[in-house]
Every structure is written in C-alpha cells, then in structure tokens.
Write a protein that binds this DNA or RNA. Structure first.
Lengths: 202, 202, 202, 202
DNA sequence: AGGTAAACGAGACGGTACGTCTCGTCTTCCT
DNA sequence: AGGAAGACGAGACGTACCGTCTCGTTTACCT
C-alpha cells in the first residue's frame, strides 16, 4: 500500500548528474577536495537537491561508488582450477591497480568515508568491500576442496590477509607486488618453485 | 658546521604545549573535531606559531603521536622463545587496541595524514609504522631460526599480512581477534591444536 | 527588461542591521577601531554577507553615512535672502560640527574611504560631498542674482574655498570659526562692519 | 648635569636607512601599504630598533617627511612684487603637484598620520603644514602693504582658503586649476581681466 | 482546465575554520 | 647598551564550505 505520492517526481537525470559529478571530482581532487558546492555546481543542481536525497558528502560519494560511477580497484580473480595460478593473477592485477594513483585516491576516499557515521560505513562495506571479500573466500574454499589449500586454515583469515596487505601497502605507499607474492607462497607451500616469490626478499 | 642561528630560539615549552593540546583535543573530540584555532587557544599559543612549524593539522597530530603524547595502538610483542605464543599475545593485544574507539580514531587520523604530502607521509612511516613492522619482522626471523616458521616464507610478507589484517578490520569496523588468530594458525601449521583458532570460523 | 533574478533575495533586515552596527561601532570606537568581525557579530550576520555586498570596511561605513545611520557634519544653509547672514549661520554650524570629535572621526573615515578605489570614491562624492557642494553653489548664485556677491567671481570657487577651509582646519585640528568668518568677510566686502571677522586675527 | 650616557651610541646610518626605507615604501605602496616589518626589512634593521626610537608607523613616516626623504607637494611662492602674478604662479605649481599621483599619495599618508595621536599630529603640523601656511600668510601681508589686497581681509583666512581648496579638490580627485584661479580672482578683485579665471566656470 | 503539492535551479543567509598578515614584545647572540 | 635576527601571543583579514532558508519555476497527480 505505497502512499501514492503527489507533486513533481524526483528527477532521474539530476540524480545521475550528481553522482557523475561526485565521481569525477573525487577522482580529480580526492575525497577531501570534494565539496557539496562543487558537486552541485558541476551537476548543475541546487545544493538543496543534494541534501534532500543524501545526508552527507560521504553518502553521495559512497553512492557514486556503488552505482559504478567511480572505477574501483577490484582486481579480477579467475578460476582456472589452480588456486596458486589464480591468486598470482589476482596479485598481479592488484599490484597494477595499486600503481594507478587515481585508484589509490579512490581507496583513500573510501577509507575516509568509512570513518564517518556507522550507517554510511556499513553501507559501503556491504556494497563494496564484501563482494570482493566473498569472492576471495569462495575461491579459497574451492581451493581447499581441491586440496590446494589446507582445509585446516581459515579461508576468511587468508582473505583478510590478502586484502589487508593490499590496503596497508597501498596506503603506506610501499611496493606491493612482492609482499602479495610472498604471502601467497607462504600460504600455499606446495606451490614452491613456480614464481619470483620463492626467492626470499632481502 | 652548523650555521649559527641568530634570533630568538624556538620555544620548547610552547612546542610541548601545542603537542599536548593537540593530543588532548584529539582524544576528546576525535580527529575531525580538532581545529588549529582550538589547539592554539588551549596551548596559549598564536596560530602563526603552529603554522611556522607544522604544515597542517594532521602533521601536528602525527607529531603528537610520535612524541608519545597520544597513546598509540602499538601492541606489545614479547619474545618467550615460542613464536606461536608470542604472536598470540600480540594478537590479543592488537584486538584489545582495536576495540578502543579512541585508538582507532587516532589510526584514522594517521591514515589521513599519510594521504598528504609525500614528505609528511614518509616521516610518519619512519617513526610510527616502521618500528612496529621491524619488530615483527625481527621476531619472525628469530622464529625461523628456531624452526618455528618455515625458512622459505618471507618474514616481511608475514608482517605485512599481520599489520594489514589489523588495519583492514579496524578500519572496516569488523571483529579482529579471530581473523588474526586464524592467520597465525595458517602461517604456523605446526601450532595445530593449541588455540581457539583451530576451529574454522563460520 | 529587468533580468528576473533567481535565488533567495537579499535580506533587507540584515542590510539594515549591518549599517546600524557599522554606525554604532564607528561612533563608539572610531573608524580604526571598527572591524568587519565586530560589525558581523553585532549585526548577527555572517562575515561573508558583508563581503558579498561591500568591498571593504570603508565602504560599509560610507554606506552607513549615506543611509543616514551616522550623523554627518552637514551644516544647515538657510536662505533668508541675505547671503551674508546665511553664510554666517552656515559657518557657525560648521564650527560647531568641527568641535564634535565624533563627527570629525567620521570625516576622517570618509577621507580614508575616498582614498580607495576610484569607483568607491566617486560613489562617496556623489552622495555625500556633492549635495553639500551644490547647496552652497546654488545659494551663492542666488546671492549673486541679488547683488550680494559680485557676479564676476566663480561661485564654485567660493564653495571650494568654504568647504576646503572647513576640511583643512578640521583635519589639522585648528580652530575653525574665525577662519570661516574671515573668509566670508573677504568674499562679501559689502558686508563690512557686521561681524567679529572684521577685526584681523592676530 | 647632562647624564653622560654609556653603552653603544645610536647608529646614525641605521636611523637614515629606516627613514629612507619608510619614504620609498610610502611612495611605492601608499601609507596603508607600509608596514613596520617592511621598513625593517628594507632598512636591514631590527624591528626593535624602530620601536626603540619611534612610537608608531605614522611617526616614522612623519619623520621621513620632515627630514626631507619624501618629496612634498610644496609649491613655490615667488615674490615679484605683484601678488596676483605670484599667486597665479603658486596656483600653477599646486595644480601640477596635484596631478602627480605619488605626491597625492603622500598627502593622503599625512592626512592619515595626522589622524593619529595629538602629539604626532602637532609635530606634523609644526614641521610640514605651518611653513607653507606662514609663507602664504607673509606674502599676502606684503601684498596688503602694497595695496594689492584689501587690508581689511584676514590674510590667514585667505591662506586657509587656498590650502583648503588645494586639499579638498586633491582628496576628492577633482580638477584643481580652475578652482584656485577662480579663488584668486575672487580675492584680488583689481586683478580683473588678466586671466582665464575671469570667465565663470560652467 | 485549474488546483495542489513536491522537486527543481539559484543563491543569500548565519556560521565555523581556515591560512595569512601585521602588530608590538621578547629573547638570543653579536658588536 | 645598541643592533640584527627572528620567534612569540594576539587578533583581524578575506576565503571556502557548511547546512539551512527563501525565492520563482516546473512537473506531476487530483479533482
């Protein structure tokens, strides 16, 4: 029994223009550089229109990410049947993403946004972090089923370690590739001898 | 051949008062609630005196952390000779720290500060991140020497994974304890059977 | 074809509150003691609202003068038919005004304001100086028509001399009354024998 | 009983450098643009040295004027024996000075400085205004003795009118030449027919 | 067709904090 | 003791955004 609303309906084109503006401004200036005024100006919208539908800057940016207007550093994770090969592919893609300063910019924006109200943070987690996280966990579980990863280890913990390493070294501006390769090697001991990662780093 | 400086020397007491004020305001109001004006007012200093020595709010707070005016979530890492036991201790301390919202607040401040100019970021890394990182790496290396961790894995990668997991789950406001326990178990397979972590999480 | 303005219209009550605040602060503290911050605070307005409509402190004060919120040292000039009598009345009123330090304060503010951008200066001239100037010139012309002032002299020059004398001696903090009386006597020779001004000053 | 002062004597070269710096800065930036810091920097002096010997910015600038480091708009007043001719010469020189924007700048600086403490103002009057004023008065008195100006008029009032007109029209940025010419014509009626001023201005 | 109601753009509003500027004082070393 | 250097507390400056508040206009649904 949805109350039949009267009055002018919400403008879809304005909604899109606002998300688009938020996305491009975040990419260009980083999260802190984005302002509601600038979003409104670029979108050709009134500020009130933004405040009518979103509670804060962080929610606008979060929605822009969720709606896909902001390209996200979500490395692909194939499933060739060989977990080691697949994780190396993910590692390579992640390292590439981390070397793209615009993507890192967006990550920092999301970290900052996630520092905001609990409600905004969980919305971001649900739509952004969790999909990647569950993709990893599921692939790891299939690897365990195939005997490529010990069934005794926690797939979630491995996913945490992979994503955490990615996040830590990206934020700290440290080289990423060897760290992830080394981690995969440490977790998949039987993979010995196939990659650069087998040589302990100095 | 230090250039003999002339003019009134920098006031040490003012420097300390500013760091103290920055620390107490961060604790009370959180990072976003801190303003340069408030720091200056509480420290009994002029704003210019702050801007003369620090480039931004984040650097003042970072210096307060470095100088120890703000307690940092730096979990202790003992060396009992048993790497598994020591890492579990570190894990427990880390989880406790992550459940202290004030400490998490400070971490977020540091992440923000690390998003600034390269120079500021590396200063932070040198003084804050690296000590913890190297502590972990060294302990892990001693564990490898004692045969408690495979000599084939990269100690750095393991440290990255531990710190990364801590950072990721703290920022995402997810429970931390099991993730770290599970990771330690995964990395020290011979430790099987001694902890709660052996039961795969659901 | 007035451009149809959009957006919230300018608040008249705020405009008045700002002018009122500027006027009272000038009277209380003198021109130099007035600050934009104080005007905003007393008017209950934001600073930006002041800067949106006025280019500088001096223009706010000038507008307060123009709008009549600040009493101006504008001596009355009657028209009794006898130019000598009328100018003596103006002289007396001017001398009284010049002995009021608050009024002199305002004059100094206006001189300072007139030192600013050409546009501001001419606005002040149009609204403040010229009315007084033209009043004098017109009265002098009627005196010439009545044969009380030589038709050969320039009425404008006489007005310049009167106002100039007033300005000079007020700024130099010199006694004003005798100077103006003496000037009137010098310009209206037929008025001989009626005033104190006939006795040369020592 | 002159106390024989001990210690290092005041540096004459520094005193001169400060006055020189004050003069050049006033010319370049106008009175409001001058700062004690800038004077100190340009003079290669410490700020304390300035504050030790002068009470305020206005006194430094005033001293610079008095000491002749700032060229003043002091028109020459010859004495050919013909008062009309001499005043016309003065008028011409004054008009030329008023068209020199740097000189007008200095005049405005002095007006502002004269708005300061009574003590500073009278010092300025004594050294700057009065010499010019007395020059005029004396020349006018000699004109009266020669029968070229009515002995009944007040020489001081005429001097006030001349200087006042000059000041007024210079500050109001109005053309000066005709105003002064017209005034001279009005005061020296016997001068009829010799100058452009006889034609009433429109 | 006219009326009602909500969303729209624009932009002014009261505020807060910013980072800069200048003031007049203070502190150090040097001459 | 005077002087150059320059840090200090204080506080005003003019700007940038915030989130709110009118305006006039537009676009739907409901008589």
């Amino acid at each position: 029994m949805t109350a039949t609303r009267t009055g002018r309906p919400r403008s879809e084109s304005t909604r899109l223009a606002i998300l688009e503006a938020a996305a491009s401004l975040t990419t260009e200036l980083g999260y802190d550089g984005v302002t509601i005024d600038a979003i409104a100006a670029r979108a050709g919208a009134g500020k009130q229109t933004i405040y009518r539908w979103w509670s804060s800057k962080s929610m606008v940016v979060a929605d822009a990410v969720i709606a896909g207007h902001l390209r996200l550093p979500a490395p692909e994770l194939p499933d060739t049947g060989d977990l080691g090969v697949d994780l190396k592919a993910w590692t390579t893609a992640a390292a590439a993403a981390a070397s793209d300063s615009q993507l890192v910019q967006v990550v920092r924006a999301l970290v900052t946004a996630a520092s905001g109200p609990e409600q905004d943070a969980s919305r971001l987690y649900e739509h952004i972090t969790r999909p990647t996280y569950e993709l990893l966990v599921n692939r790891l579980r299939r690897g365990q089923d195939a005997g490529q990863l010990s069934a005794a280890v926690s797939a979630e913990s491995v996913a945490d370690a992979l994503i955490g390493t990615l996040l830590f070294r990206a934020l700290a501006r440290l080289p990423l590739s060897e760290a992830l390769t080394g981690l995969v090697d440490a977790l998949l001991p039987q993979d010995r001898g196939t990659g650069a990662g087998t040589t302990p780093r100095t």
